[in-house]
Design a protein around this nucleic acid. Sequence first.
DNA 1: TATTTATATTGAGAAAAATAAAAATATATC
DNA 2: GATATATTTTTATTTTTCTCAATATAAATA
Lengths: 100, 100
Amino acid sequence: MNNVFKALNDKTRRDILELLKQEDMTAGQIADHFNFSKPTISHHLDLLKQAELLTSVKKGQFVFYSLNTTVMDELLKWMLQFTADTLPLKKKITPRYEGK
Amino acid sequence: MNNVFKALNDKTRRDILELLKQEDMTAGQIADHFNFSKPTISHHLDLLKQAELLTSVKKGQFVFYSLNTTVMDELLKWMLQFTADTLPLKKKITPRYEGK
DNA sequence: TATTTATATTGAGAAAAATAAAAATATATC
DNA sequence: GATATATTTTTATTTTTCTCAATATAAATA
C-alpha cells in the first residue's frame, strides 16, 4: 500500500500513467515525452512497477509498458471508506464542547 | 494534488485518518495511539492539514481534528480514469508485435 | 493575581530515505 | 563487430522523519 502512494507522489510518474492510459509504449517512447534522462525515466518506471501500477513485456530490444488497473481498483476501495457517503455513522464529538 | 499523495505516503498518517473515521479527536488523544512523541504526531497532523485531508478546531486548550472528505472525493475522481471500466477505448499496441 | 499544570506547536539538528544523472553494463538487432 | 535500446550501479544532493528543547496558550489553583 505504501508503495502505491510513494509511486503516485510524483508528477512525472503520474504523467507517465496518463500517457499509458492511451496506449502502451516503450521505455524510450516514454522518455521522449520528458526532459529527464533515460536512466531517470527508467528509475521512475521501476518504481511504478514495484507498486504494480505498470506491467512490462520485453519484445526484442524494446520493453513495452502497460497500465495495470487492478492496484488502482484496490486503492479506490480503500479510499471509499473516507468519502462522505461512507461515513454517516461518525460520532461527532466536537459539538459537545461548543458550549464554552 | 501532489500534497495529497505526499500526505498519504506514510503509514502513520494513514492510520491517523482511519482513527478519525470513527470520531473526532484531540491531538493528544491521537498521539496516545502511537509510539511516537507528540511533536512527531503534531508534524504528521500538520502535513495532513496542508493536504486538506483534515480540519482542526481549537476548543479551549484542546485542538480537535476531523476528517475532511472533500479531497478524498477529488482524488477518487482522478483515480477513476485509471480503472478498468474507464479504459475500454485503449489502443493495445503490444499484440501487434507478438508475432516475433 | 500570580503560579502551577495541561495541551499543543515550533524549531534545531541528526539519521534515514528519496531523487536525479553520469558512467558502466546487459541484451538484441543489423 | 557495430549500433540501438534499456537497465544497473555509483555518487551527490535533497527531502523526510524523528526527537529534544523551547515556546505559546489555556485552565486550575493557591
